[in-house]
């Protein structure tokens, strides 16, 4: 069963690669616009050994990871606070509802004026974008805690903080991690967007802009491939983490099967 899936998947990928190659070779698509698949793959392989490109990837990774970390440090405690105080939650909800849809990309021109440092600009945008899913999911997770479990703890004489630490936070944890996953995806999108817009010197996006300006679509596509690999790895890591940390949750919600 699994072997058949792998075989089919490999076939699908192979067919796409060959079709793309043939489309170029037969002149169906203009190779000056879209280079041959083999060229792109060769470039992608070369890029691994290209220190300039690796530095760009590293730059993106740093912005992305640091932005996420800062967002977690800010948004999760705030979400915990708001989520465990129902009044505060109702009061801040409209504010959250208004601030959340402002695309952080739209803040970039403003941030650029405010902050001189290139990577600080990008990081700020990533923090803004990543904070919302974290905040909202944390709040949601804390609101969703089974009241019976909380009351049981209270009836044994545990205080508010003990209930928070032993019941509320553990049961909200899966939601927080869902927030982290969403934030990771959005963070990468915003990091690359920021690199495209600010025209900075470092980052995968900046690499692509330079390559695109020189009409080197082979390099652009090769870098795109690596950006996809980056996204794949990040998502796989987080899924694995989620699975390990919350076996019980996945088992009860049937998400694993």
């Amino acid at each position: 069963m699994i072997r058949r899936r792998v075989a089919r998947g490999a076939t699908g990928v192979a067919v796409l690669l060959i079709a793309a190659e043939l489309a170029g070779r037969t002149g169906l698509v203009d190779t000056s616009l879209l280079p041959l698949m083999s060229t792109v793959l060769a470039r992608a392989a070369e890029l691994v050994a290209d220190p300039a490109f690796l530095a760009d990837v590293w730059g993106t990774l740093i912005v992305w990871a640091a932005g996420l970390l800062i967002a977690v440090v800010i948004a999760v405690p705030l979400g915990t606070l708001l989520g465990s105080l129902p009044r505060a939650e109702t009061a801040t909800r409209p504010l959250v509802e208004f601030l959340r849809p402002i695309p952080s990309v739209a803040l970039l021109p403003l941030i650029t004026l405010l902050i001189p440092d290139d990577s600080a600009i990008k990081m700020t945008a990533v923090v803004y974008a990543a904070a919302w899913p974290l905040l909202v999911n944390t709040m949601y997770g804390l609101r969703d805690v089974d009241p019976i479990a909380k009351e049981t703890m209270r009836s044994f004489g545990f205080g508010r903080l003990a209930v928070l630490a032993r019941v509320s936070l553990p049961s909200a944890a899966p939601f927080v991690l869902t927030g982290v996953r969403l934030a990771t995806a959005v963070g990468l999108i915003v990091a690359v967007s920021a690199e495209l817009i600010t025209g900075g010197t470092a980052g995968v996006g900046a690499f692509m802009i330079r390559a695109g300006a020189g009409f080197r679509t082979d390099l652009v596509l090769a870098a795109t491939l690596w950006a996809g690999v980056l996204g794949l790895v990040a998502n796989a890591l987080l899924l694995e983490l989620q699975r390990r940390a919350f076996r019980w949750h996945a088992a009860t919600s049937g998400e694993l099967s």
Binding site: L16, I189, S193, T224
Partner: peptide, 26 residues
């Protein structure tokens, strides 16, 4: 789904802005 799944997984992993430079050229 068996044939297409890996392509879908890969396609969605590419951050969409990363395709902007390509789209600009095309």
């Amino acid at each position: 789904a068996g044939y297409i799944d890996p392509l879908v997984e890969f396609g969605r992993a590419i951050p969409p802005p990363a395709l902007v430079p390509l789209f600009i050229v095309i």
